[in-house]
Design a binder for these strands. Sequence first.
DNA 1: ATATGTGAAGGGTTTCACAGCC
DNA 2: GGCTGTGAAACCCTTCACATAT
Lengths: 265, 265
Amino acid sequence: MATGRTHRPATRSRGIPEATVARLPLYLRALTALSERSVPTVSSEELAAAAGVNSAKLRKDFSYLGSYGTRGVGYDVEYLVYQISRELGLTQDWPVVIVGIGNLGAALANYGGFASRGFRVAALIDADPAMAGKPVAGIAVQHTDELEHIIGSNGVSIGVIATPAGAAQQVCDRLVAAGVTSILNFAPTVLTVPDGVDVRKVDLSIELQILAFHEQRKAGEEGGPESGAAAPADRAEAAAVGDAAAAVGGDRKGPDGDVPAVMPA
Amino acid sequence: MATGRTHRPATRSRGIPEATVARLPLYLRALTALSERSVPTVSSEELAAAAGVNSAKLRKDFSYLGSYGTRGVGYDVEYLVYQISRELGLTQDWPVVIVGIGNLGAALANYGGFASRGFRVAALIDADPAMAGKPVAGIAVQHTDELEHIIGSNGVSIGVIATPAGAAQQVCDRLVAAGVTSILNFAPTVLTVPDGVDVRKVDLSIELQILAFHEQRKAGEEGGPESGAAAPADRAEAAAVGDAAAAVGGDRKGPDGDVPAVMPA
DNA sequence: ATATGTGAAGGGTTTCACAGCC
DNA sequence: GGCTGTGAAACCCTTCACATAT
């Protein structure tokens, strides 16, 4: 209830399932590549292979957009590029601001994939006064004090947060108050936002942790499942847990104080 | 069929649903924060709020791991931290290599969230000879020629690809041949890998495109749905599409050649 | 009294398989 | 003949609601 909703269907769109929306950018990328090679048409099979999905899924996805293919032939590449671009809202350009110009923020500012998809970096914002005025990716960094002004005068509705976790919620609140209604969050924190604001998150270390999970399973399989240790330990083990957890915690906290970057509000 | 499987259940784990695995890192983060504040126990309600999920989901998730809570009381924070860490395989440390030390690669090398979760950056690898020997995040960059040697001698099983899209598949092939079985891909390409290798991808621009989709819907709602334009256009419109697509493409390709970073193989 | 653990219901997503159209 | 578009089946995930345990 008090929890910030992290991911809403945003008015349930117009019947296009969320899972489909999430794949449209993939199709678009594959189609753009084909378009650059001047390929006129593709079959669902070919396009699916290029996008890394299966063809039945692709056809179902496209069926939500309309009937854009030709039976017995396939899809017109240029036509589909246009339709998907329009559906995604990429026929207009979206000014975005990036807040937090550290290593990651700078990398994002330099990332070609943004500009190449209709996203224009309208401003770079950082809380460090020493950063103000410095050019990053050809754009002068502005101080956080300017945030509201920048959002307002540029009509920015999409914000990217690349600050340390501790600052993220505060920055988020200011962005939202200034009129931003979509946020891409790179800080490892759960953001709380009012209804009507969309948040998507990218957490670099979470992806690695998911890989580690599967990697561990692979290793365990070689000599058969070591299910003895994996089986639900009986509650008596909890007594020993203080030590075990301390050992783990010790590992995690590591040699130096790297926790600050991970500490939520 | 010829398509590289991008996301496999990897031997179907031991019955822990993929969706649950993907949330374990979230719980772990929230629990770590509580642990640092020396909170001894949490209820599913509190923890769920901190992790940004609903409490029934959290309880179901935990039920796959075992019965780690106490009815009427809640969960022991330290105990849960340990159990989830173990389940994710974070009680051991994972050497990882990062290939492609551009802006993003450097940001990843500097990212505290890796080291703080048991991931150790064993090496940074780049194809540019001029980069060789340069220290990034305190680690000397090594040339791609060393790749196989580095993987082998460090027992690396997780690789991070942050190269331009055009180089990604090639790098991926070499990583896999050298023994890497889990790959985190930041390059905007579909990677093809043999069975038994897991790939997870993070595409920065895809997330923005999904936000743009919802943002567009919000804007459209204000004056009622402009479903006229959104309705499946009849095929005659395809004739005009060449121009429309060109206009879009023109926008996308932008002022300068920013496409190289996005061009798949 | 309070909060977990879990069958059962519900909703969404993927896959199948084939009718329909070129 | 070949390929799209789509009902129907299968599957997975989420949510509900309450039995169960402390």
